[in-house]
Amino acid sequence: MYRSLKFLFFTIIVAFNLLLSAEYQVDHSRENVVKFISHAPMDDFEGVTDKIDGYIYWEGDNLLNKSDMYFEVDLNSIDTGIGLRNRHMRDNYLETDQYPYTHFKGKLTKAEKVSENEYKVTAEGKMYIHGVEKDITVEGNMTALDSSYHITTQFVTALSDYKIKIPQLMFFKINENMQLELDFYVKKIEKN
């Protein structure tokens, strides 16, 4: 009897914790877009992929409560429009044979409601690119849909911060600063 009570209490606590928590994972059925944009006089280009994966998590009604997030992008999937340039990007800059993913791990630190369904949010955490991890803060928007959120953000990252060397060769210069634009959806995961 006593053991059964203990088990019941423990189960209630775990269930309570799970009920309050909300985990949203990238919704692969939606049109997700990650863009890497380089502006340079001779070689202005965009790299695009939809291979973003990860989750965002919080507990209760407050987006900041026990906030946790992890998003990663499969760098081998980036398409700049030309196969040769994809290869240069993979082999010469990102070295994807060693570092196939870039990721951001952090948490929401600010969430300001700007309309009925929309939040302006700030996330802080560590950005990992090319084997280098760096603390960053990014701002974005989260729009609540039925059982999902639409997340958009854009920020600029300096390639030298991540030890990505930029070749200086005639006709071929990429910008030291790469703009990243993310536009994707996460959907709520139902706990069993």
């Binding site: 914790n17 799970l18 928590s21 985990e23 994972q25 990238v26 692969h28 291979k51 994966d53 990860g54 989750y55 998590y57 026990k66 906030s67 946790d68 992890y70 990663e72 499969d74 081998n76 999937s77 994809n86 290869r87 993979r90 994807t96 196939p100 993913y101 791990k105 952090g106 948490k107 995961i189 706990k191």
Partner: peptide
Amino acid sequence: PGFTQNPNISWKRSSPETQP
């Protein structure tokens, strides 16, 4: 969140790494 992955989180990578 400081832990490798929050035990309440069920996320796992959904597809293998792209092979160029």
